[in-house]
Design a binder for these strands. Sequence first.
DNA 1: ATGGTGGCGCGGCCA
Length: 256
Amino acid sequence: MFTIATWNVNSLRVRLPHVIDWLQDKQPDVLALQEIKLTDDVFPSEALQEIGYQAVFAGQKTYNGVALLSREPATNTITDFPSLDDPQRRVLGANFGDIRVLNLYVPNGSEVGSEKYAYKLNWLQHLYQYVQAEREQHEKMIILGDFNIAPDDRDVHDPEAWQDSILVSPEEREALQKILDLGFHDSFRLFESEAGHFSWWDYRAAAFRRNRGVRIDLILASDALKPLCASCDTDVEPRKLERPSDHAPVLAQFDC
DNA sequence: ATGGTGGCGCGGCCA
């Protein structure tokens, strides 16, 4: 069994105790982190090593930053799309055995029509190009992370209120669909077709308590991995802790 | 309709 998870931790410095507890509880082979919000020189490699996890990472000051924590070493690591020169650290690709893993922190986009929205759509185009090329080289591939896109209205607590806004706009959803059309599957939807299952809840207005969230943290499995996917679940428990991340971890299991 | 919270870092940006 190969188990892999994604978690936007919103500062690894603050959330390190939660991450360590969760790793010890769930023991995944790989955990992809987003928004670590720290520079490489202060990455907590030793604390993770002590509980049996190695790390590769691409950090920056204050914002963004991604990492892959794993029991076995990562190989063939990349931290950028070849076609995009971007100072923002949002991409981390690596192999774990014969599985190609791509950890993403997709830009939020702020507001539809804004400069940040244009950056998001452009970034997604470069992602598409990269995945298109990678797909030809790797049968077993997993793309996971904070996509900052809710795939469809089941993934939004109040679709009418959210209509055409950031995270759900048609252009964003089309960009995600294009990537799925390269031969990927939303693991969560292989097992659950009902609405109301979320991975992010705003810190404000008691959104978590009222389950007013969106499902934007995804694990995409390639065609070859789809039949091997045994489960995919959101773990809401860490969201209930003191000083939680605003995102919950999502964990998938594969029979390989 | 607005503001509500949290992280970084100490004012304002970002989510």
